[in-house]
Amino acid sequence: MKINDALFGIVFVLVASAILITVQSFPTLPDQPYGPATFPTIIATIMMLGGIALCISGYRERAHQPLIRLAAVMKTRDGLVRMACVPVFMILYILLSKPVGFPIVVPILLAAFLVITTRNWLKSVIIAAVTTALLWLFFVDFLMVSLPLGILTKVIY
């Protein structure tokens, strides 16, 4: 996905401005002009100068660089769906793993993702179940990580 440099430049200038405004409220060392704001001010200034340079180069190249150009793979339905699955998988894990529980959420999410990538239901369900079991054994039983049990907490304890 190609984005015109000028757009990146604007984002960098905005972020740098926000940092420069935020650090105004930081205190300084007693009797010294330096403090927690000194270093971020220098870095934000460099960021702003770089952002301005990108704005200029993006503007100059506007004839060759459209504002946004999707990657070839994003123009195919399958490719876009598979790519979208990555953030969706993570967001659903974040939202559901605690209330519902890892042992329930993960096989469903993984199987769904595998069905999309392999288009084979049976294989997907088997792989998802085996992978979840192996990862549970490895992380919970071997490395002692406490993965959320969710609604199963009441059932088990």
């Binding site: 998988f89 993984l110 990538t117 392999t118 992978t131 990862l135 992380f139 990580v145 993965l147």
Partner: peptide
């Protein structure tokens, strides 16, 4: 097609763990 979804799950658990 099988590898990348499993790696993604591993990433999620790794980040959480």
């Amino acid at each position: 097609a099988i590898l990348f979804p499993i790696i993604l799950l591993f990433c999620v658990i790794g980040a959480y763990a």
